[in-house]
Simulated scan of single mutants.
Amino acid sequence: MTNSEKPPQGKVVQLGTAYDPTPQLATKVQPTGDPDLYRFTSEPVSGGEWSAQGTATRSPSGLVLSTLEVRAGSSALSGVTGNMLRKVPVGVILNHVRADVALLTPVEPQAPQPERAPRRGGRAALSDDLLRQVAVSYLRETAPDRPAGALQRLATEFERPKGTIRTWLTRARADGWLGPSVKGRAGAEPGPRLQAEK
């Protein structure tokens, strides 16, 4: 959510949930000479108690924060404390970095997909259109400004149980609509097929 006043460089996202508004966060991502390494800075828009910087690295399970340095801000009279560290929203920073990296990543030409053998019996095949819709909805619902509970919102949107949505997300990753994810953490990068549509 963009700050209507004078926003700092980088994107501004709202932290917290719809029921618990909290200060806004400004995060800026910069590429390096290594296509798998990005630098970032992050801090509350209102300034304050802390600022963070570090690097994000592309791993087999997707983009992860590889280093994170937290510094005490001018209003932190006691320096870096455990209470301050608990206020640093690492998951939100990671999701924001993922979103920015997706915009910075050049689209590579995609090899043609091999024809699939026709299915015999069993459940109906999932169409590319459905998998694309699921991927786009998942990226929207796990964006930095969204509260937790993306899977439940997708289940409501598509009128299917959460287990079905998980299966569809797995298939969307396998078919290239979503990039890899970090185990136990919501969010992903757009897959090569979505990036090719930019």
Score class of each variant (00 low, 15 high):
Val134Gln: 00
Ser137Asn: 12
Leu103Cys: 02
Trp168Val: 01
Pro147Tyr: 08
Glu69Gln: 08
Ser78Glu: 06
Gln53Asp: 10
Leu169Arg: 00
Val88Trp: 03
Val80Asp: 09
Asn95Val: 03
Lys198Glu: 04
Leu130Gln: 10
Gly187Asp: 07
Ala135Asn: 09
Val80Lys: 02
Val88Asp: 02
Val45Asp: 04
Gly121Phe: 05
Met1Lys: 07
Leu131Glu: 05
Leu131Trp: 04
Ser127Val: 06
Gly47Glu: 10
Ile93Gly: 06
Val92Ala: 14
Gln113Trp: 01
Lys28Ile: 04
Gly122Ser: 05
Pro89Phe: 07
Leu104Val: 12
Arg120Phe: 10
Val12Leu: 02
Met1Ser: 14
Lys87Met: 08
Arg166Ala: 02
Ala102Thr: 02
Gly179Leu: 09
Asp175Ser: 09
Ala186Phe: 08
Tyr138Asp: 03
His96Arg: 12
Pro7Trp: 02
Asn3Tyr: 11
Glu5Gly: 15
Ala186Asp: 13
Val45Lys: 04
Leu94Cys: 03
Ala52His: 08
Leu77Gln: 15
Asp128Ser: 05
Pro35Tyr: 01
Arg173Gln: 13
Asp128Ala: 09
Ser51Ile: 04
Arg193Ile: 07
Phe40Ser: 00
Phe158Ala: 01
Val90Lys: 14
Pro8Gly: 10
Ala125His: 07
Pro89Ser: 10
Pro106Leu: 10
Gln24Tyr: 15
Pro106Val: 04
Gly16Tyr: 09
Arg153Leu: 07
Thr27Ala: 10
Gln14Asn: 11
Gly179Pro: 00
Arg173Asn: 05
Pro190Thr: 05
Leu37Met: 12
Ala117Ser: 10
Arg39Cys: 02
Arg39Met: 05
Asp175Phe: 02
Ser61Arg: 13
Ala186Gln: 13
Asp36Tyr: 05
Ala172Asn: 05
Glu159Gln: 04
Pro118Glu: 14
Lys183Glu: 11
Ser75Ile: 12
Glu115Leu: 15
Gln24Gly: 06
Val80Glu: 02
Pro106Ile: 14
Gly79Ile: 10
Thr67Pro: 00
Thr156Pro: 00
Lys87His: 11
Leu15Asn: 15
Val12Asn: 01
Thr17Arg: 15
Pro190Gln: 09
Ser61Ile: 08
Ala150Lys: 06
Thr67Tyr: 01
Arg146Gly: 01
Asn95His: 07
Pro89Asp: 09
Tyr19Asn: 12
Leu194His: 06
Gln113Asp: 15
Arg120Ala: 14
Val13Asp: 12
Arg160Phe: 02
Pro60Asn: 04
Ser75Glu: 12
Gln195Glu: 07
Thr32Leu: 08
Thr32Tyr: 03
Gly16Trp: 15
Ala174His: 05
Arg185Ala: 13
Ala135Lys: 03
Arg160Pro: 00
Ala150Ser: 14
Leu94Tyr: 05
Pro109Lys: 12
Thr32Cys: 08
Ile93Lys: 11
Ser42Lys: 13
Asp145Pro: 00
Leu77Arg: 11
Glu141Tyr: 10
Gly73Lys: 00
Gly184Tyr: 11
Arg120Gln: 15
Lys87Val: 09
Ala148Asn: 03
Glu189Thr: 10
Glu5Arg: 07
Ser137Arg: 12
